[in-house]
């Protein structure tokens, strides 16, 4: 796949790296994961307490 090779070379420059970054996405989905865990533990605690 020539296109992805081109992309890999382009990643060298920091400006392009910023442009292609998916860090915001990663943090967003991890926050969703955290939310799922917290709500689940909350109801599990309720189950144990009752």
């Amino acid at each position: 796949m020539p296109k992805s090779q081109l992309k890999k070379q382009a990643v060298e420059s920091p400006e392009v790296e910023e442009k292609d970054s998916l860090k915001g996405t990663f943090i967003s989905v991890m926050l969703i994961g955290g939310f799922i865990i917290i709500t689940w533990i909350g109801v599990w605690a309720l189950y144990l307490y009752r």
Binding site: E18, K19, D20, S21, L22, G24, T25, V29, I32
Partner: peptide, 14 residues
């Protein structure tokens, strides 16, 4: 969830 955020982030950065 990942795909959607990634679409938005890629476009926003563009």
């Amino acid at each position: 969830a990942f795909s959607l955020f990634a679409t938005f982030e890629a476009r926003g950065r563009e």
